[in-house]
Each structure stands twice: as structure tokens, then as C-alpha cells.
């Protein structure tokens, strides 16, 4: 491997094993020879798919935030909440920063991530050079991944529903279904993402 030019080499981010990177055919996958981490997984027209799915996710997010989320009724009284109100549950007293954090985790960071992906991949999907600061913005999208927790929030809704089952009747609003669809779209989008392929495309422009 000593005579390979340095720009063709790739180090596994999980175990530092050195590989010679090359462009793969659409259905091929490259995994690390030592630890088995997935290194390269291109998909046909994947950039366009990620852009389309990110737009879909943004639209669903608007619905998820503004439509009613859950409605509770018992003994003739009822109360409906939107996702925004859920985040504001902590807004009294010194718990207020948690309100902000919850809003960021379930709405803010996912939206920021979708926008960053669209910004990076839109020109690349159209065969144009990357827009300015695309590197920094795509790296941000990458780092935000563990912190966008929309799917955890939906499972949390399930747990809350079971806890309330004996106490009151709870009905699901349109925002709940928008959130459910959002999770599927996000999972699909992540399946189409191949970090190395995107970095390669950014690097070449």
C-alpha cells in the first residue's frame, strides 16, 4: 500500500485500519477488513433521494408542530396539547431551560439537520459544484445526528398513553401521525446517506 497516492487511502473511523478507497458499483458495499464497520455504501441517485426526503420531513414537521398532538378527556373535562405546549411544560420557574432543550431535541435540531442536508446535496444532485461552506454545514449535519430525537419522542408518547390509560381517555391528533410519518421518512433518508460518497463529491468540486 506504500505506493498508493495518499488521496486514495481511507482510514476506518472505528479502528484506524488503512484501506484503498475506490468508487463502487451501485449495489456494492465496502466494510472494514478488521472491525466490519460500514465504510462505503453508494445508492443510485441517492443525493436526490436524500434531498426529496428531507423536504418531505420538513413539511411533516410543520404539521407536527402546529396541529393538535394529543387530546385528553375525563369526567366531562378535556384538554388538547400541541407539541409546542409539550415542550413548554417545563416553562415554569427554574425548569425553563429544559423547555428550550426539549424543543431543540425534537424540533429544532431535526429541522437544522434537514436544512443542512438540502443545502449540501442540492447542488451536488444537480451535478454542480458544492455551495460555499458546504463542508462545515455537512459536518454539522453529521454531528447533530445523535441529538435529533424525534423518534424517541414518539415512543415516549406511547409510554405516556399507557400510563394514562386508566386515568382518562386520550385521543391522537393529526400531529401524532405526522410525527409517526416523520420517523419513517428520517429512517429512509438515513439509509440513503453514504458519508464517504458525499465527502468524495464535495472534495471533487
Amino acid at each position: 500500500m506504500n505506493d498508493t497516492p495518499i488521496h486514495e487511502l481511507m482510514a476506518c473511523p472505528k479502528c484506524d485500519a488503512l484501506h484503498r478507497a475506490r468508487h463502487l458499483a451501485p449495489q456494492e458495499r465496502a466494510t472494514c477488513a478488521r472491525c466490519g464497520a460500514l465504510l462505503i455504501a453508494p445508492r443510485v441517485r441517492s443525493f436526490l433521494h436524500v434531498v426529496a426526503l428531507s423536504f418531505t420531513a420538513m413539511i411533516l414537521m410543520v404539521g407536527a408542530v402546529f396541529f393538535p398532538f394529543l387530546k385528553i378527556s375525563t369526567q366531562g373535562m378535556s384538554h388538547a396539547s400541541s407539541v409546542f405546549e409539550v415542550a413548554m411544560a417545563f416553562s415554569e420557574g427554574w425548569l425553563a431551560p429544559l423547555s428550550f432543550a426539549v424543543m431543540a431535541l425534537i424540533v429544532g435540531l431535526p429541522v437544522l439537520r434537514f436544512s443542512a442536508l438540502i443545502y449540501t446535496l442540492w447542488p451536488l444532485a444537480n451535478g454542480r459544484p458544492a455551495w460555499p461552506h458546504a463542508r462545515r454545514i455537512f459536518r454539522l449535519a453529521d454531528q447533530l445526528e445523535p441529538w435529533s430525537m424525534a423518534e424517541i419522542f414518539v415512543i415516549g408518547t406511547g409510554v405516556a398513553l399507557v400510563k394514562l390509560a386508566g386515568l382518562a381517555t386520550v385521543s391522537l391528533g393529526p400531529a401524532f401521525w405526522a410525527f409517526g410519518a416523520l420517523i419513517i421518512v428520517t429512517a429512509l433518508k438515513n439509509a440513503f446517506l453514504s458519508q464517504w460518497t458525499i465527502w468524495d463529491a464535495i472534495g471533487q468540486s
Binding site: 394529543l70 385528553i72 384538554h79 415542550a87 413548554m88 417545563f90 426539549v102 415516549g156
Partner: peptide
């Protein structure tokens, strides 16, 4: 983090 979200949902919803 699921537990924090459950607390948020319960406190926003159960205001009767």
C-alpha cells in the same frame, strides 16, 4: 431521554 419526554407529555396534557 424517553423518560424526560414522558414527563413533558404528561405535564402538558394532564391539566384538568
Amino acid at each position: 431521554m424517553i423518560d424526560v419526554f414522558v414527563v413533558a407529555i404528561l405535564s402538558a396534557l394532564v391539566q384538568l
